[in-house]
Structures are given as structure tokens and as C-alpha cells.
Design a protein around this nucleic acid. Structure first.
Lengths: 342, 342
DNA sequence: TCATAAATGATGTGCGTACCTCAAATCAAG
DNA sequence: CTTGATTTGAGGTACGCACATCATTTATGA
């Protein structure tokens, strides 16, 4: 015999199909004793509702939105690509996934987005944004409207998000630190650290983990104060040049955020490529190519495809009130060098 | 209007539902011109088949089997656990997954398994086995019976398997080599290599990649001939001891196959733990613990959960004649150190 | 005990697709 | 133009479930 169906439950519990249906869908008009009978039957038969059949009958359409910050960073582009890919694959079965870009600096933009989510009956949102009170408030209001919220890449731990899809950035920074330290061997020198902005949570956490490891395990190495690229075009390159001028004994470069392009450019223009150990984050076409050329030694990354698929699956599961497969949704901190490049 | 359905296509193409159905399911008896008409309608309406409805209607039950070698290695246990987990999760939706243990040395056992697969109407098999003519023959016969075959962990490139789920072991060995070399810094010395058996394809490939990198990039390091553990209890420890006695200048230990337990034991009994750089393969409870204790420096691994889920998805896709999402099924070579341990 | 309310049963329809049968239309070849 | 084969149409049933309606049974309280 195949899987038990509602008919089997009805037979087992000695009630009618209609009653089983009432119990399953928590409709009123059933005595407590009867509910128990049915639930016992469900338990003993090991019935599990066929969600796809249920959704088919229910005509359920899921509407999910990915809230992404505006910008054209390589990482963001990868994210967008992965979303587009997931949208057509079977993960998106019966669910529509749209991308909403939001300017995180602009409260008006945020309000508009929030409106859109509530008006357009979006069932769940995956939010990728820096941790700010504004974002936290938005999450709170979306949750109050009964929607599902998962945070993506950057967590908002103090918000009431249902789930976080991403990695532990402190551990990520620690990983970078260990690899930097060990790759540098017993050499003595300084490590320059480039971040986007010191008040972005990711950057701060990575830096924290990185510094802790270097301080603890590699006494011959010293990390310099953060160089802030602020997401601008030429700034990262300039400050990197300035830093290298000031500190000729820089033997390592940790690129905790964007700006890897500029940094590698500077190294190459000074023919220091390969002589300075470079550790960066996020695998993109650019960083991949830099790895291949040997300008960058290690990239710490998270699989973007996995990230998006996981977010989609979690949103679905939360909407259905179904358990998620923990191990499948755990995003790993990946270490990529030239040799294990996909 | 919602998503287009088969009815919409029929209307658009000016044909009947039955014809649309024939085209969609590639049934015979439709003129080429008609097929085109229908496909044009599908394209212009942007129709996508509702997979859950299709599966519901099809009432298709998939029967898959995982052929695993007998044995109780940690890696195998992890594989079994992952299969059990996948069997109950939604990946196994409408599909039943069983494990068949087979003694690869025993041709009779092989024959019996082959019989079982053919008789019990198994739709697809995932095979994990060393590359031998016997296995290749078995795959051929299973394929001839019209079943799907994917190879797992170890490929059988010369067979007619439909797909390989696993990593490139040469690249895996190269990765191990680079990490070994860089972790050892500028030191000079020897590297002992422990394998299960030199005529297992995986081992040979890993060793190949490892040696190539060491030879090319790390002239101060020399790799010793393989120590064969042969899957026995105490042998790996013994030969490791012997090797360390003979070569006091061993500064690195590459464990390409099983036997990590014995190897670490020997290092610890000689208080060499932490002083010899150890690189191993496959993350298991044991190797994880060794990483945490600092006895092992790096583990090169593949995510077992991903491996099994991927195999299940591929089997499904091949049975349905559906395309697979390449990027999702690509198994990555993962580098694990203490800091990025899940 | 009877009226009334509450609980339950019986039954039907529809979701989007697969698959089957049989009749009708169309086609190719003689 | 006829014959036989091929192609197409029409329609039904099923999958597992949700949801609705109405009839019937059972419990509750006066």
C-alpha cells in the first residue's frame, strides 16, 4: 500500500471524509473527542499531507520578494543571477519570486517598498541589508502583517525575522585570519585591512574574527587600522597606495569587503602581485580570475546559488508551516584557492 | 489571468487537448507541423508545466537504490546517515530510496544485487564502488535494462553511467598539496602519504594531484612512497610508526584515504601532534574532532548531504527526462579547517 | 420529552495534469 | 475514388486534497 491518504484516515478513525477535512484544516464544528480520534489515526497511520496536492486544490500561489540594496557590486550581480535562475527552476514551483531594489539610505524608498509588500500580498520576503534601526522597524511591521521574513547574508538578530540565511561572519573572519597567518609562514610584517565601511556589521564582524586569530596565533604579524573604501570607485585604490607607501613592510592584505578589484590593481601596478598574500571574500567572476592569475591567494565565500535556493526553500517551508531540513539549509563558509576553484 | 494551462495552449494553437498532451509528453502520432504549432503556442504563452500537478496525475512512484560497499568506515556511515535523512525529506517526494550493501570482492554478491535491481523494478541506482571491470559490466547490464545509473563519489568514466556525482579527485589532491605546502611555509622536509590501497582510483588520483603540486611549487618538500593501510585495523598505525622511525625529518602527513584515526594516534603517542602538518580527506565525527583538537590541520571534503541529495535529484531528473540545474549539482571540493567547521 | 443547537455524514466540484478509449477527420497510395 | 493508415478530436477517469452544501444524526438544556 502506498502512502496513507485522507480516505485512509477516515476509515481508520471511523469518521467521514468531511470530518477528517475539518480536523486537518482546523475548521470549527468538531467535538474534542472526535478531533482526538482523527489525530490518533493520523499518528498511527503516519499520514503526511501531500502539500503539492493541497496547494493544487487550494490554488495557492506563493509570492516572494527579495529585497536587495541598490548597487552593482559583483556579489550583488551574482545574487541577482542566482535569483533569476532559481525563479525558473522547480524550487520556485507555484511561487513567484521578484526582486525589489531599495535604497537603504532613503527612508522614503523603504516606506514605499514596505507598502508594496503589504499591498501586493507578498507572502514572504528575503531581506539583504545592513543592520539599522530603520530596517529593523520595517521587518517588525512586515512581521506584524503576518508575512514571513528571512534575512539574507547579513542577519538582523534583534529583529523578529523567522530565519537567517547566511554565514557567521566572525567565523568567516577567523577563517581568513588563519589562512593569512599560515600562508605567511614564519614571516614578520604588517597586514593591511580593507573594508567597505567600519560600521557595516559584516565588515566589523569579519575584522573582529580576523584580528582575534592573528593576535592569538601569529605574534609576528600586526594588523593595520581599517582602510575604508566606502563603496566608491577610486578611493580603495588610493588609500591602498597611501597605506603601502607608509608601510613598506606590508606582507599581507585582507580585503574584508568590496574593493578587491582596486586592491589587486594597485598590487599589480607595483609588481607586488604574488609577493603579498591576499585574502578576500566572495567568489565572483572578478575574484575568480584574480585567483587564477595568482594575485589573490584565498577567497572566503558562501555559495550564492545555495544561498538563494535555501532562502526560497525556507520561505516556502515557513509559509506551509513545515519543518526545514536543518543540514540542507546550513550555509557553509567556503575556502577557495586556485586548486579547488569549481 | 493566471498561469496558462494546457487548455490555453490548446485554444491558442487551435488543436485539441489530446493533441497538446501528445506533444507535451512526446507521444507519437502527431504531424510535425502540428507539433510546431503547439510548441509555438507554448512559447508565446510562456507555458510551464505544473510539476506538482503532473506528478500528482502521474502517480509515479520512483524506486531508487544506493549501492554501497560493505564496511563501517566513518565516511560510509555518514553516507548512510545522509541517505536515511534524504529518504524522509521532501527530496524523496514520491520516491523510495533503499540502500543495498554489496561486497565488491564477491562476484556472487554482485550478481545477486544486479538481479534484485532488475526484478524489483528499481528505476535508478547510485553506485559507489571502486572502478573494476566487474562493476563496469554490472553498470552496463543495468543500463541495458533501461535503468538510470549514476556513479557516486568514485566515477566509472568508461561505463555508460548517466551522471557522476562527486568531485574531481585529482583537483582534490592538488588542493591538499597546496595547503600542505603553504602551511609548511619555507620549511624543508619529507611528507609521508598514507593511502588505503594504491590501486583504488580515488587514491591514485589524489596522490597524483598532490605530488604534482608539491613537485612544482614546493622544491624543499619531498613526498615519500605511499603507505598502504589496506583497510585493516592496525596496519596503518604500524606502517606510520615504521615510516616515522626511518624518516625523522617528516614534517607533513597526507592521509589520502582512511586511516586518519591510526595516524593521529601515532602522532599523539609520540607527542608530535601539532608539530607535523596533517592534511586528510572527508569530514567525519572523527576527523572533525581531530581538527578541533588541532591534531589535523586541514580536511578536504565533499558535503555528504549535498552528495546524496544531488544523487537523488539527478536520478529523478534523469527518470523524468528533465534537465538538471548544473550549478546545483556541482559538488564542490571543500576545505575545512578548525575555523570554518560548520 | 421535545425543541434546538451542534456535530457529523454524504456527496459533489475543481485544481492542472496524465493517460486511456473510441470515433471522426485527414492523408497517402494504389 | 477507394482503401487503409495516420492523425486528430472528444470525452472520461484519476491523482490527493480543499471547500461547499445539505441532509442526517447526536447531544444539550428547558
Amino acid at each position: 500500500m502506498g502512502k496513507p491518504t485522507v480516505h485512509d484516515i477516515a476509515k481508520e478513525a471511523g469518521v467521514s471524509l468531511a470530518t477528517v477535512d475539518r480536523v486537518l484544516n482546523a475548521r470549527p464544528g468538531v467535538r474534542g473527542k472526535t478531533v482526538e480520534k482523527v489525530q490518533k489515526a493520523i499518528g498511527s497511520l503516519g499520514y503526511v499531507r501531500d502539500i503539492s496536492a493541497a496547494n493544487l486544490a487550494r490554488q495557492r500561489q506563493y509570492r516572494f520578494a527579495f529585497l536587495l540594496p541598490e548597487g552593482q557590486s559583483q556579489f550583488l550581480q551574482e545574487i541577482r543571477r542566482a535569483i533569476a535562475e532559481a525563479a525558473v527552476s522547480n524550487i520556485a514551483d507555484r511561487s513567484e519570486m521578484r526582486v525589489i531594489n531599495v535604497s537603504l539610505q532613503d527612508p522614503l524608498s523603504m516606506m514605499r517598498v514596505q507598502q508594496e509588500i503589504l499591498e501586493k500580498n507578498i507572502d514572504g520576503v528575503a531581506i539583504m541589508a545592513n543592520e539599522t534601526p530603520t530596517v529593523r522597524d520595517m521587518i517588525m511591521r512586515i512581521k506584524q502583517a503576518g508575512r514571513i521574513v528571512v534575512t539574507l547574508v547579513t542577519d538582523q538578530p534583534k529583529s523578529e525575522r523567522d530565519h537567517f540565511v547566511g554565514v557567521d561572519n566572525v567565523a568567516s573572519g577567523r577563517t581568513a585570519g588563519v589562512l593569512m597567518g599560515r600562508f605567511l609562514g614564519q614571516r614578520e610584517g604588517k597586514i593591511a585591512v580593507v573594508v567597505n565601511s567600519t560600521n557595516e556589521r559584516d565588515m566589523a564582524e569579519r575584522r573582529l574574527g580576523f584580528d582575534a586569530v592573528i593576535a592569538r596565533d601569529f605574534p609576528l604579524l600586526a594588523t593595520l587600522p581599517s582602510l575604508e573604501g566606502r563603496g566608491e570607485q577610486d578611493l580603495p585604490a588610493e588609500i591602498t597606495r597611501a597605506c603601502l607607501d607608509r608601510h613598506p613592510d606590508v606582507i599581507g592584505l585582507y580585503c574584508a569587503g568590496a574593493g578587491l578589484r582596486s586592491v589587486t590593481k594597485v598590487l599589480e601596478e607595483r609588481s607586488m602581485a604574488g609577493r603579498v598574500t591576499v585574502v578576500g571574500h566572495e567568489l565572483t567572476p572578478l575574484s575568480r580570475e584574480a585567483l587564477q592569475r595568482g594575485v589573490v591567494d584565498v577567497i572566503i565565500t558562501q555559495n550564492v546559488g545555495h544561498l538563494i535556493r535555501s532562502a526560497a526553500r525556507v520561505l516556502r517551508a515557513k509559509c506551509d508551516g513545515v519543518d526545514i531540513v536543518e543540514s540542507q539549509e546550513k550555509i557553509r563558509i567556503e575556502i577557495v584557492i586556485r586548486e579547488n576553484l569549481i
